[in-house]
Amino acid sequence: MQNSNRFHYGVVYGIFAILLLPLLSTALYSLATRWGATILPDGLTFDWYIQLWSDPRFLLAFGQSILICLGALALGTLLIVPTIFVVFYYFPRLKWVMNLLILLPFAVPPVVSSVGLLQIYADDPFPIVGTPWILIFTYFTIALPFMYRAIANSMHALNLPDLMDAAHLLGASTWQAFLLVVLPNIRKGLIVSLFLSFSFLFSEFVFANILVGTRYETLQVYLFNMRHTSGHFTSALVISYFMFVLIFTWIANRLNK
């Protein structure tokens, strides 16, 4: 009993250590003054972080990433929440169609779909290639599967037909019932999916690079463009980015409990 327990703990912590090791060394590297031919760095410093967080180009890319993610998530929410309500309440038989549709963004690899997106958005009526708009319109489609799943799960947990009937009989219009009864009950699922999608979109690189590139630099594209500068500097960038996403994911997990 004792031995097998110890073995299990060993395996789990071993895997954890393997996964954590590159992250830890990156963190240490970002804090090192110089780390050349020695086992441990020569000295520790926050200079790389100070340098990074005072770089206007970094701050701009950071802000632009946040803006695009928020825009995409707002668009996604506005589209998917009413759609889910309509499908679940009025057309429950169409759920399978939704399940199929919602898988499509997964089915096509980003490199392939970006070619199509470039075609669509290059000319009229939507000449938005190279602008942040194309990323917003692309990102919300990537976020849809996550958002749909999470919200649909919350919706499944409700007895929607009976709740709507009860609200109607108590004098509420369908709109009031949606606002006062349905929305508060799917709020948790919605918020969790928003946080998770945010972390996910925040680290998106392929679309950002192909569709917009340096014309509207996001954090990932900035990181890519900085790859030839000091390794300490890019390490500080990676760790900063990682901590940001970690906090978001942690909040999402906390809300999910």
């Binding site: 009976d162 709740l163 009950n185």
Partner: peptide, 19 residues
Amino acid sequence: PAQRRGIAMVFQSYALFPN
């Protein structure tokens, strides 16, 4: 419409608002 009939109903599933 149901809202204006002045009729109340109790459901097998209770249909209480969970929030």
